[in-house]
């Protein structure tokens, strides 16, 4: 029975396999700094994946759309009430992920008679007046990982590692929006392509070869061109120079076209 420790662990591991299987085909999300704030980019197929949570906080996720919606609303509700009751300055991403979202996801993950959230989240916070700034990713088991400069979520751990490696080649904090968007899209292709290869051939030996292989820029742009036949680039920024209190805005089609026009 499940009240035996071994059975419980086995059930949790089965659940882990099941959720990883469900997430495998997810379109990655790339987050990085640029010279006027923080950028989130993905390529989607109709379903919106990047959301405004509060003045300086944005959220993106891969997974089941109903789970994304539930946790997005939880984050938005919590942030809205806290931001109103106290001050927007008292609202931090750390509190939101570590006190609210993380424990909720973990609880549902380990409650093996209930349904688990099929989700990976990437949240981002723009710091003003010396406040903390950066990215926090949340895994489907509730674990939290913070990074000041860049973060990714993807369908598999391998894809995430490959994207992290690609991103770490440059310090993007001085990049213009267009350059940052181009770099983020190339990173997306690295993660996506690896995910596709994995789905086709999931043997252990090939996994090592895949992670070592690198794609040249031409190949990256070619894959991107193919993906854009069915998919659409979705991007949003938390823009430090934005006059409004709310620093979030979706990228315009002009901004997106400026980044990819040379590749099409």
């Amino acid at each position: 029975m499940l009240d035996e420790p071994y059975r419980w662990l086995e059930a949790v591991n089965n659940r882990r396999d099941y959720i990883e299987d469900q997430l495998r085909g997810g379109s990655p999300v790339v987050g990085l700094k640029y010279d006027d704030g923080l950028l989130l980019v993905t390529i989607g197929r109709g379903q919106r994946k990047i959301f405004e949570v509060h003045d300086r906080i944005a959220l993106s996720a891969i997974g089941h759309s109903a789970d994304i919606e539930r946790l997005r609303m939880m984050a938005t509700d919590t942030a809205s009430v806290q931001g109103f009751q106290s001050s927007v300055d008292d609202l931090t991403l750390h509190r939101l992920t570590n006190f609210v979202l993380g424990p909720t996801i973990k609880q549902s993950f380990e409650a093996i008679f209930g349904s688990a959230y099929i989700i990976k989240m990437l949240l981002v916070e723009l710091g003003v007046r010396g406040a903390a700034e950066g990215f926090i990713s949340l895994n489907y088991d509730g674990t939290v990982q913070a990074n000041q400069h860049r973060e990714v979520i993807g369908g598999t751990h391998e894809a995430e590692t490959a994207m992290q490696n690609y991103l770490s080649a440059a310090d993007t904090s001085e990049f213009s929006l267009t350059s940052a968007l181009q770099f983020a899209l190339e990173t997306w292709v690295v993660g996506w392509e690896l995910g596709v290869q994995q789905a086709e051939d999931d043997s252990e030996e090939n996994a090592n070869e895949r992670s070592e292989s690198t794609m040249d820029k031409e190949r990256l742009h070619e894959v991107l061109r193919d993906e854009l036949k069915a998919g659409e680039i979705e991007g949003a920024v938390l823009e430090a120079s934005r006059r409004s209190n709310s620093k979030f805005r979706l990228l315009t089609s002009d901004e997106i076209n400026a980044a990819i026009s040379d590749w099409l």
């Binding site: 405004e52 949570v53 003045d55 938005t76 809205s80």
Partner: peptide
Amino acid sequence: ARVLEHSFQYFRRSQL
């Protein structure tokens, strides 16, 4: 004014 500002923002953020 504060309630109004937060209400408009909350509607936009929650209802997209």
